[in-house]
Design a protein around this nucleic acid. Structure first.
Length: 137
DNA sequence: GCCAACGTTGGC
DNA sequence: GCCAACGTTGGC
């Protein structure tokens, strides 16, 4: 099972909103690398949920409940979306500053490539995030 | 097919 | 509000 990290500006779509909705379409991705990651997601894969712009922290864990299919908010068929559902909040949010200062996470794809909205997380990185977030699955 | 100009994202 | 990083566009 793979782990991913998905970003959202909380003013656009927050973790709290995902919890309220119970499930959502992860649409609007318009970056080729991010799109390729969406296409590789499998049902059951976990996604760290990161608040960009405000908060700047990983706040929760979601899971993929439907694999990539066409994103109707795009004008053409190049773009896809997945469906995700909340699993649990992190007991303690893990800030970008914390990710950058911990040697286990400072090489994470999302840290190295700041603009990438859907990135891959290694098993070791996931273990470190769970520890920093004082959270057990 | 190259590359300059421009637009967008997102951290600071 | 600024700017770095990076993607896209369009002229040649």
């Amino acid at each position: 099972m793979a782990t991913w990290l998905i970003k959202s500006e909380p003013s656009k779509y927050s973790w709290e909103q995902l919890r309220a909705d119970r499930r959502t379409h992860w649409d609007g991705v318009r970056n080729p690398s991010a799109r390729n990651n969406l296409k590789e997601m499998k049902v059951g894969d976990l996604c760290l949920f990161y608040h960009s712009s405000e908060g700047l922290s990983i706040v929760g864990i979601a899971r993929v409940v439907k694999e990539a299919y066409p994103d109707p908010t795009a004008g053409d068929d190049r773009w896809v979306m997945v469906d995700v559902a909340p699993v649990k909040a992190l007991r303690r949010a893990v800030s970008l500053a914390a990710l950058k200062s911990d040697r286990r996470t400072r090489e994470m794809e999302m840290v190295r490539q700041g603009r990438l909205s859907v990135s891959r997380v290694t098993d070791a990185e996931m273990r470190a995030v769970l520890e920093l977030g004082e959270t057990r699955l």
